[in-house]
């Protein structure tokens, strides 16, 4: 029995005006209410019936001031649940200090999608290829989750638990993404391998943050997308380079280690082998790019 649907499934729609109201609805609907921010991932999934239709869509956009991007206290970046990808891409603050994030956002989908889609939504959707995940992992970001029971801060590294699965429970809301202050002398880059040059999911995504001084790698974070059930840090690879003098040999070793750490699968988008090979290519390129003048 197959119907290819043009219409969305019949769902209710509510738009709470405060976080409290939203959290109450979250609790009330338990597993039956889906959060709606930009809807750019949710709507296609509903239309194609990839997920069971929720009874209700709980729209965040009635809540004022959730679209913030701030560095008010100077101790790191805060991204509200409704900050769009386009806002991340064009924010002067982010471009100046967290260039890797605006660069990543600009590589995603289309202007139309980025005008609606949010960083928080990209993370909660939790596909292995979620583009914002690798740079945020490399930036040591944390997620602030809220429910009626209270708040908790989860390191992004612990946030993803499987394809389309996160630690976010049915009554919670990812209300803010927090990014610590970037160390001086550090630079980052996100490399996204795709067949075409736009409108693509990453075949492999690699984010690298390097803090370098006098030819020494003081610190490095490497995060990979689309090569494991979740976006992942390549910590063994990081350890190869951390504290060492940069050398071609060591960078290659790092890249190889990252490839070994990755756990890609075969699917219609690419084979396991190609993905693993490309982790090596991209990690090497990313490290070189971050330390090039």
């Amino acid at each position: 029995m197959v119907t290819l649907y043009r219409r969305l499934p019949r769902v209710e729609y509510v738009q709470p005006k405060t976080i409290e109201e939203l959290l109450a609805l979250r609790a009330q609907y338990a597993g039956k209410g889906a959060l709606l921010a930009g809807g750019t991932d949710l709507m296609p999934k509903l239309k194609r019936r990839e997920i069971e239709a929720p009874g209700c869509l709980i729209d965040l956009k009635g809540i004022p001031d959730l679209a913030y991007i701030s560095n008010a206290e100077g101790d790191g970046l805060r991204i509200g649940a409704l900050a769009t990808l386009r806002a991340i891409e064009t924010s002067a603050l982010i471009q100046a200090t967290y260039g890797i994030l605006s660069q990543t956002a600009s590589s995603m989908a289309s202007v139309q999608i980025r005008n609606r889609g949010t960083v928080a939504g990209n993370l909660c959707n939790a596909v292995p290829s979620a583009d914002t995940a690798p740079p945020l992992l490399a930036l040591d970001a944390t997620a602030k989750l809220m429910s009626q029971k209270g708040e908790r801060i989860v390191p992004l590294d612990d946030f993803f638990i499987g394809p389309n699965k996160t630690v976010l429970s049915d009554d919670e809301l990812l209300v803010e993404i927090q990014v610590p202050r970037v160390l001086p002398h550090s630079r980052g880059v996100y490399l996204k391998l795709t067949q075409r040059s736009s409108m693509e999911l990453a075949v492999v995504g690699v984010a690298v943050m390097v803090s370098a001084r006098n030819g020494v790698c003081e610190n490095i974070k490497i995060a990979l997308g689309a090569v494991a059930p979740t976006p992942m840090r390549a910590k063994r690879a990081e350890a190869v380079l951390r504290g060492q003098h940069f050398s071609e040999e060591l960078i290659e070793h790092t890249a190889r280690t990252a490839a070994e750490e990755s756990r890609p699968i075969d699917d219609h988008r690419a084979t396991q082998e190609y993905r693993r090979d490309m982790v090596e290519v991209l990690v090497k390129r990313a490290v070189i790019e971050t330390i090039s003048p």
């Binding site: 809807g39 750019t40 709507m43 239309k47 869509l57 956009k61 139309q112 999608i113 005008n115 609606r116």
Partner: peptide, 29 residues
């Protein structure tokens, strides 16, 4: 409506000054 999934842009409209795929926005939104 070309694809209904936000991939073709045929349904692009300008909402509050920004382009959106009208197929991915709910009418109540």
């Amino acid at each position: 409506e070309g694809c209904g999934l936000g991939e073709c842009g045929a349904c692009t409209v300008i909402m509050d000054g920004k382009t959106v795929n009208a197929c991915l926005v709910l009418a109540p939104e």
